[in-house]
């Protein structure tokens, strides 16, 4: 499915600052599911981790390889036992201990805050969307509005969304790569994933935990609306659902109010309270 690019300006400017080393890659970094083409803050955080990690890793790999080649090719020298001991200790301590230790500290120092920013936040009033995965489709519900979709997710741009993910059968994994991290859909549990999209457009998601013969085709179409566009869309859909008209996008039997097999995701008939709900 051809999708319009929704790459935000911010990402472009970040990428333009990157060293020449990675420029040839950039042309090939676009794609409907590319992690390197972020369309939301969470995915952008990961991209910002990736490029420096790639550069450091490349430097280390080239350095170690070069040291090996030089050691193999250079003219052998004689070392006194003291010299040998000193040199070997220097190599092992600096390369074997200090280098990885420093890398780990740096990595955690920069990486952990990025991870923390992805988590659901206290005091936020996000939009809640319930996603129930089953072999092999995504049931997407907007609790409070009675809207149920299949394999289609609609979101407002610029606003945090909490996706409450569970499964009706086997384990699946909910993932919209350009928005951010994935979370497993586990039967008996509900996991909450916080996502936010930068601007209106279309995105693609795909199940990323092996779930049987339909795994490769368990695709989710994601439509990001403007805030106003989303309200309009939801109102229209909710009205259609209340009238009892069959949801054109959702093939769920019974239309508006499904009888979810999903444990843990209680869905009551419309209580239009700003679209926020909490776990039972």
């Amino acid at each position: 499915m051809p999708l319009p690019s929704a790459r935000p300006a911010a990402a472009l400017s970040v990428q333009s600052m990157l060293p020449a080393l990675v420029v040839p890659w950039l042309a090939a970094c676009d794609g409907p599911q590319s992690i390197l083409d972020p369309a939301g803050p969470a995915a952008r955080g990961v991209t910002l981790l990736w490029w420096p990690m790639l550069i450091v890793a490349t430097v280390v790999l080239v350095g170690v390889t070069a040291a090996w080649i030089v050691a193999m090719l250079r003219r052998p020298r004689d070392f006194s036992p003291e010299e040998a001991k000193r040199i070997s200790r220097r190599w092992v301590v600096s390369g074997g201990i200090l280098l990885p230790a420093a890398s780990i500290v740096l990595l955690l120092g920069f990486g952990v805050p990025v991870g923390d920013r992805m988590l659901p936040r206290r005091g936020e009033a996000p939009l809640r969307i319930d996603v129930t995965a089953r072999q092999w489709q995504w049931d997407v519900a907007y609790p409070g509005d009675g809207v149920v979709l299949v394999d289609e997710l609609h979101l407002p741009a610029g606003r945090a969304v909490h996706i409450h993910v569970t499964s009706a059968d086997v384990i699946h994994s909910f993932w919209v790569p350009r928005l951010g991290p994935k979370i497993d859909a586990v039967p008996g549990r509900t996991n909450v994933l916080r996502l936010q999209a930068d601007e209106a457009g279309s995105l693609r998601g795909q199940c990323s935990e092996f779930c049987g013969t339909g795994h490769a085709h368990m695709v989710l179409k994601v439509h990001v609306h403007t805030e106003a566009g989303f309200s309009a869309w939801l109102t229209e859909r909710a009205a259609a659902a209340h009238v009892g008209g069959k949801d054109p996008a959702g093939a769920t039997p019974g239309g508006a109010l499904p009888a979810p097999a999903a444990p843990g995701a209680a869905r009551n008939p419309p209580r239009l309270v700003s679209g926020v709900a909490f776990l039972p």
Binding site: V64, A71, P76, S88, W91, G96, I97, P100, S103
Partner: peptide, 23 residues
Amino acid sequence: MLVAIPTGVQVFSWLATLWLGRP
């Protein structure tokens, strides 16, 4: 990540062995 340290120790002792030896 900590596993990188013992692994690094081995890699660099191999490197140093080559460096100090007559390969």
